[in-house]
């Protein structure tokens, strides 16, 4: 039974890692990569290494998610990438509140690539 659970956890790591690669929108990919590290923590625990599991859960879930969120906010939410590739399959549209939040952060800092992409579009 334990081998079956370990197999399921490893399959979940594989599935969420593949999902993190294949999704074109950045936020669900980030969520999937966080899930991959969470299941890695469970598999470390099932392999009798609780300290490694604790470090993996703290770093992979907490710290990496915050750093990814900060990076996505800095790079305009991945919106330009989604506009050019056409990866709108996830149903998340740029709504007015999000656009307003982006506009307030937009004029404060000099940013090269998103401005050029927005000007071109």
């Amino acid at each position: 039974m334990l081998e079956l659970l370990l197999l399921l956890v490893c399959a979940s790591i594989l599935i969420s890692g593949l999902l993190a690669i294949c999704l074109e929108n950045l936020l669900p990919a980030m969520v999937s990569s966080g899930l991959a590290s969470l299941f890695a923590a469970v598999s470390f625990l099932l392999l009798a290494a609780p300290d490694v599991a604790m470090a993996e859960a703290a770093i992979g879930s907490g710290l990496a998610t915050f750093i990814f969120l900060y990076a996505i906010r800095k790079t305009d939410g991945g919106k330009t990438d989604g506009a050019t590739v056409g990866g709108n399959t996830d149903g998340r549209r740029p709504d007015p509140g999000q656009a307003a939040g982006d506009e307030t952060g937009h004029g404060s800092s000099a940013r090269g690539k998103p401005d050029k992409a927005r000007g071109g579009a």
């Binding site: 709504d95 007015p96 509140g97 999000q98 656009a99 307003a100 939040g101």
Partner: peptide
């Protein structure tokens, strides 16, 4: 309701 950006 109204636009959600106004009530954040």
């Amino acid at each position: 309701g109204g636009p959600p950006g106004e009530r954040t």
